[in-house]
């Protein structure tokens, strides 16, 4: 067992855990936060996406011991003190899901993706050497690490686009 300190959705935790435990399993099995989902457990689906120190990551591939000292935000913490995060509101408005299994990961990923776009980080569809601009094409490329088995993609892109535009 190893002692790990991290902040989860603003709350500090100190836990004694087996080094094999991933951040995803820590959230779900140890802290009772079942928002982040386990789709593949191998980095292939994005359902487990959370923010680690502000950056989106696949929590199924991060060992909790290696995340010692970091700040994790899962879907439960996105809205902070408000009722819903603008992206959550927009997903509702655009009907951006069907079964909802991928949604927590989509939401965290979208928060990260919009921040990355805002910071000017390029993507594979950004013109060489230029600053990326908010376009549906950019959102599709940047959200490609989040699969949706119900194929709600069209509405997901619209929901993310609207929040990006009004920001």
């Amino acid at each position: 067992m190893t002692k790990v300190r991290l902040t989860v959705n603003g709350q500090p935790w100190t836990v004694d855990i087996d080094p094999r435990v991933t951040v995803l399993d820590l959230l779900r099995e140890h802290l009772g936060l079942t928002g982040a989902k386990k789709g593949c457990d191998r980095g292939q689906c994005g359902a487990c996406t959370v923010l680690r120190d502000g950056r989106r990551v696949n929590s199924c591939l991060v060992l909790a011991v290696s995340a010692d000292g970091s700040e994790i935000v899962s879907v439960e913490g996105l809205a902070g003190d408000s009722d819903l995060h603008p992206l959550q509101r927009s997903f509702l408005d655009h009907d951006a899901y069907q079964c909802g299994y991928c949604t927590p990961g989509q939401l965290c990923s979208a928060v990260g993706a919009l921040a990355e776009l805002e910071a000017g980080w390029p993507s594979a569809v950004t013109d060489k050497g230029s600053t990326p601009t908010l376009e549906p094409e950019e959102i599709r490329e940047r959200m490609s690490g989040n699969l949706c088995r119900c194929a709600a993609y069209v509405n997901i892109v619209a929901a993310v686009y609207e929040v990006g535009r009004s920001a």
Partner: peptide, 21 residues
């Protein structure tokens, strides 16, 4: 600026989440 091929190759791989890690 100096090695656009490197930036492009990295961005062609994996996903935003995985590249962050």
């Amino acid at each position: 600026e100096r090695f656009p091929v490197l930036s492009a190759a990295v961005l062609a791989g994996a996903s935003g989440q995985l590249r962050n890690m």
